[in-house]
Amino acid sequence: MPLTPMEIYKLLPKTNCKRCGEQTCMSFAFKLLNRDKKIDDCKPLFEEKKYEVQLKKLQELLKPLEKATETGLIVNSERCNGCGNCVVVCPVHVERDPRGAGIGKGPLIRDPIYRIENGKLVVLNVHACRRYGKNRILCIVCRENCPTDAISFLEG
């Protein structure tokens, strides 16, 4: 299931104490999801005993973040059968690899974002993804064309 800022927010102290440097707990939740902030930045969660249960739940909730790439991408290999839809639809591949992935073949470029290895999707070069870096856009073309939800993004 995709993670939402709301779910994170619900487990925060909701006091808007600003000790993390954010104006509100909600904006801290967004930053947590984008991994611009860490859970340790919320001091009250650790200092005050009444948040103990919430903290545990939150840590559990944020576990997928560790598995995600810098673009928030999570690949569930168990659900992948290597159909390659994602490799072929990727707009970056289409542009950079018009004779390979662009026309349905395995990538011919050296540093594709995605490749199928041993029958499963492997993320090789996440830095080329349109979701990466300063001018990122929230492209979800690969996820939309995965019929088994093997591809997901943190923001949902």
Partner: peptide, 22 residues
Amino acid sequence: DDIEFENGKILNACEKGFRHIS
């Protein structure tokens, strides 16, 4: 027709093809 081999890995084949080949 685009199955490749690299460092002991089979590239581009789907899971079904990978199982068949490997």
